[in-house]
């Protein structure tokens, strides 16, 4: 089976004054739809940088990131910032650790935001189903400020899935939650990946969550190796 996400020789460095700091050094990976990859490593090892490159928020210095969307196969390295942004809004779901929701939009509005950005009014029904599935229907018209941390992350997952993207990126999605909520959100992510044939990349410090993933990529501070 062809991989949904294919990464080869990915490199990224940052300038720190006159010094160049290498963050990602020839990272390669393959991830098929319905499979999950846990990215682990200490703080500063480049987990978020990797996810941001996969999402097209950052451009890599070298290497290739190929995404198969079902419509087309795209190498993110060949796209400019605007093209990567368009690709992200159509085909990539993203869940952050903090501040996942727009505070001035209600739960419903946050959930349908990706659909609205893509002018897909037909996805309202799916958004409703996701809110039902995640036990959030009762909170539909409330603003995020009154939601618990767990509820906020569930809304974020629902929003990330509403477009049925081939790739779902989650940057420490449970880092801010208690054990129960953490497990609940992880369940949602992994089951969505399996059931909806989504390739899930999840950056985490949690050994428990990493263990649930089909694949694992460990990044070190100095020379991130591919495992």
């Amino acid at each position: 089976m062809e991989a949904t996400l294919e990464v080869r020789g990915l490199c990224k460095h940052y300038a720190d004054g006159d010094r160049l700091v290498e963050v990602l050094n020839h990272v390669s990976l393959d991830l098929a739809g319905g499979r999950s990859l846990a990215v682990t490593g200490p703080s500063g090892s480049g987990k978020s940088t990797l996810l941001n490159i996969l999402a097209g928020i950052l451009a890599a210095d070298a290497g290739m990131v190929v995404l198969r969307t079902g419509e087309a196969t795209v190498d993110l390295a060949t796209l400019n910032d605007a093209e990567r942004t368009r690709l992200r809004r159509r085909h990539i779901g993203y869940v952050y650790q903090f501040f996942n929701l727009v505070p001035t939009l209600t739960v419903w509005e946050n959930t349908v935001l990706p659909a609205r950005l893509n002018k897909r009014l037909d996805l309202d029904a799916r958004a409703g189903e996701l809110l039902d599935q995640f036990a959030l229907s009762a909170r539909r018209d409330t603003f995020p400020e009154v939601l618990s941390g767990g509820e906020q992350q569930r809304v974020a997952v629902a929003r990330a899935l509403v477009l049925q993207p081939p790739l779902l990126l989650a940057d420490e999605p449970t880092g801010n939650l208690d054990a129960t909520n953490s497990k609940h959100v992880a369940d949602l992510l992994f089951s969505a990946a399996r059931e909806q044939n989504v390739a899930l990349v999840i950056a985490t410090h949690s050994e428990e969550i990493a263990a649930r993933a089909d694949q694992r990529l460990h990044l070190n501070v100095d020379t991130p190796p591919l495992t």
Binding site: I57, R86, R89, Y96, F99, P114, L117
Partner: peptide
């Protein structure tokens, strides 16, 4: 900034 980053992550383009 967190809202801005979030919207950027969702694929908001400069025109939007």
């Amino acid at each position: 900034r967190s809202s801005t980053r979030l919207l950027h992550g969702l694929g908001i383009v400069r025109g939007e």
